[in-house]
């Protein structure tokens, strides 16, 4: 199936429009929170001296009263690939702050997402082949339970059992304190070791949805006329399921999968708190609490760009794998 050029152009144009709207929104949202970071810093460290607050305000470029001007300089900076300077990380650029946190988030959340989908689909397929079997029931039951308890509860339980009581895994953090003195193989090993519980908790927390979506779709597809026909024609169950069934049932799951990928960058703030894990979620949360506009904007921008990019990718891949998608 050939992708029509006009379709591609439309999708790209849409992505660019979304990006621009996202940038405008990014600029406005944090300013709506109110509060003055300069005052907060001054009151914490300088007895609330207005002179210090004013000096800080000047340093941060907050002395410019006009929103339009602020927006103008924001856009100008963006065009130069400059995300500004974080207030609370002053004088470190937002780019560096984000760059330090991003690898941890990407690693953990990406692996957890992939694992969760892989396991979810596997269990979903098994369940759909024998709906109502003990496997189907217990997998659904357990995953539903985990799906309906708060994420941090799952995390706490994992820490309680596997770290605090059994001592199999560290209680938190991404690397051992003596990380710098390890050789590279042990460095990698220690990162993996510390990542086990966070990844397991994230994967567990989202697996139920993946199981359910694939299972229900597969059950539906398998009951459709052409599958019944295929059965009547004597095609083996294996061939029916894997060749026809899964391909068709897979599409809604694929959409969900691409969406999840886009959100990977957003991080998992509760996970980061529970496991004392570095990442972009906590960074964003603290930035909001601290009214660190440039950092909030930077974080939101990175998240927005990744979501828009993945969505665009999904839009472009979709017609290739699903001939039914109407390109017009």
């Amino acid at each position: 199936m050939k992708i029509q050029l006009s379709y591609v152009i439309r999708r790209v144009a849409f992505a660019i429009a979304t990006l621009f709207a996202a940038i405008v929104m990014n600029f406005l949202l944090p300013r709506l929170i109110g509060g003055d970071p300069a005052e907060m810093i001054a009151s914490q460290t300088a007895l609330g001296s207005p002179d210090v607050a004013n000096a800080l305000r000047k340093q941060f470029g907050l002395d410019d009263p006009s929103l339009v001007h602020q927006f103008g300089s924001y856009i100008a900076q963006l065009l130069h690939g400059n995300l500004g300077i974080s207030y609370f990380n002053y004088p470190v650029p937002v780019k560096d702050v984000l760059w330090n946190a991003l690898p941890w988030t990407l690693g953990i959340v990406l692996i957890a997402t992939l694992l969760s989908y892989a396991a979810g689909w596997f269990i979903g397929i098994k369940g759909a082949l024998k709906p109502g079997s003990w496997f189907d029931h217990s997998a659904l039951g357990v995953s539903f339970f985990i799906n309906s308890v708060p994420y941090f509860w799952v995390g706490i339980m994992l820490i309680l059992i596997f770290a605090y009581k059994l001592d199999w895994f560290p209680m938190g953090q991404a690397i051992p304190v003596e990380y710098d003195s390890l050789d590279s193989l042990h460095k990698l090993g220690s990162i993996a070791y510390h990542a086990v519980l966070p990844i397991a908790s994230l994967a567990l927390a989202s697996i139920a949805t993946h199981i359910l979506v694939l299972r229900n779709n597969l059950i539906r597809v398998l009951s459709e006329d052409y599958m019944v026909l295929a059965r009547a024609k004597g095609l083996s169950a294996r061939r029916r399921v894997f060749h026809y069934g899964i391909r068709n049932a897979f599409l809604p799951s694929f959409t969900g999968f691409m969406l999840s990928l886009g959100h990977v960058v957003g991080g998992a703030i509760t996970m980061e708190i529970v496991f004392s894990y570095p990442g972009i979620g906590m960074l964003t949360y603290n930035a909001i609490l601290n009214h660190d506009y440039p950092l909030i904007q930077g974080a939101f921008l990175v998240i927005a760009v990744s979501i828009i990019a993945v969505n665009l990718l999904a839009d472009l891949i979709y017609p290739l794998i699903d001939p039914r998608v109407n390109l017009n």
Binding site: M25, L29, L32, G34, I269, T284, Y285, A304
Partner: peptide
């Protein structure tokens, strides 16, 4: 759908925190 897609870009939790402070 443009509005929906736009709002989907920002993490919901962040939106909730911002709205809560309003």
């Amino acid at each position: 759908m443009f509005v929906v897609d736009l709002l989907l870009i920002i993490p919901v939790m962040a939106l909730m925190i911002i709205l809560a402070s309003f």
